[in-house]
Amino acid sequence: MKKFLLGTVGVMALGLAPAMAADLPARAYTKAPPVIAAVYDWSGFYIGANAGWGSMRDSWNGFGLDLGNHDSTGAVAGGQIGYRWQAANWVFGLEAQGNWADLSGSHVDYNWLPAWTEHSKLTAFGLFTGQVGYAWNNALLYVKGGAAVTSSKYDFTVGAPVNLVASTNDQTRWGGTVGVGFEYGFAPNWSVGVEYDHIFISRFDADFYNNGLVLATNRVGGDVDLVTARLNYRWGGPVVARY
């Protein structure tokens, strides 16, 4: 009798199991979360440092003569501050840059006897530019242009038996500049880059003094080419989410 009851209960349980399973609600489908791609954002204020090399092509004229020319070359170092804003892949910006420079050179002028040695030295420059660039995520290629200011000094020496030195005062000159650069964001707020700039400086008449007296007025000056490496730190949203 006991075995009969146990068997009956078992058969009933087997019969109820499919029915109970049929009454259970269907499992809801859960959509996988969207993939979020981090996109670099170049917007924000930035400050940085730069260092590199420069060359100034300096031509001299005086007394109705071509007095020759030379390249003044050397190191440059300084800093920059600016602001960029990004619209889609386009990046726009404004920047001010100031640099110490040590671009110096000379040549011997054989128009005279004894010969003169003419020296040029660029000691500082500043750039005030606008930028337009195109960004591929954390890589940015840009062009720039605007105003430039340079500080330079010139002198000539006359050898024995005259033994004379004549120098200009510091010459501050304004001109224009254009450039191109590439920058790479290697961390959320840090980027490194390389930049080429050309400074247009019109030649000008400079007075040369010795003991307070003007000994000569020569036409001097020339354009400047610069190549610098840059490191920037930016404030602002470094990445945005894109679904």
Score class of each variant (00 low, 15 high):
Ala187Thr: 09
Phe128Pro: 06
Ala139Asn: 10
Gly179Gln: 09
Lys153His: 13
Trp136Lys: 08
Asn169Cys: 05
Ala187Trp: 03
Trp174Thr: 14
Ala148Trp: 10
Gly176Val: 06
Asp170Arg: 06
Tyr154His: 14
Ser191Ile: 06
Asp170Thr: 13
Asn163Phe: 07
Ser202Ile: 02
Gly181Asp: 00
Arg173Ala: 10
Trp190Asp: 05
Thr177Arg: 02
Gly159Lys: 14
Asp170Lys: 11
Val165Gln: 13
Val162Glu: 05
Tyr142Pro: 10
Thr129Ser: 04
Leu141Gln: 06
Pro161Asn: 11
Asn137Tyr: 12
Gly133Tyr: 09
Gly130Lys: 11
Ala135Met: 11
Gly130His: 11
Tyr196Asn: 01
Gly133Ile: 04
Gly193Lys: 03
Val132Arg: 12
Leu140His: 00
Ala147Ser: 09
His198Pro: 04
Asp155Val: 04
Val194Asn: 12
Asn169Arg: 13
Asn163Glu: 03
Val132Gly: 15
Val132Trp: 12
Ser191Phe: 05
Gly185Trp: 01
Gln171Cys: 12
Val165His: 09
Ala135Pro: 14
Gly146Phe: 13
Ala166Val: 00
Val165Phe: 02
Ala148Met: 08
Asn137Arg: 05
Glu195Ser: 02
Thr150Ser: 11
Thr129Pro: 04
Trp174Met: 02
Val149Arg: 07
Leu141Arg: 14
Asn138Ile: 02
Gly176Tyr: 12
Lys144Arg: 14
Gly146Glu: 08
Asp155Glu: 08
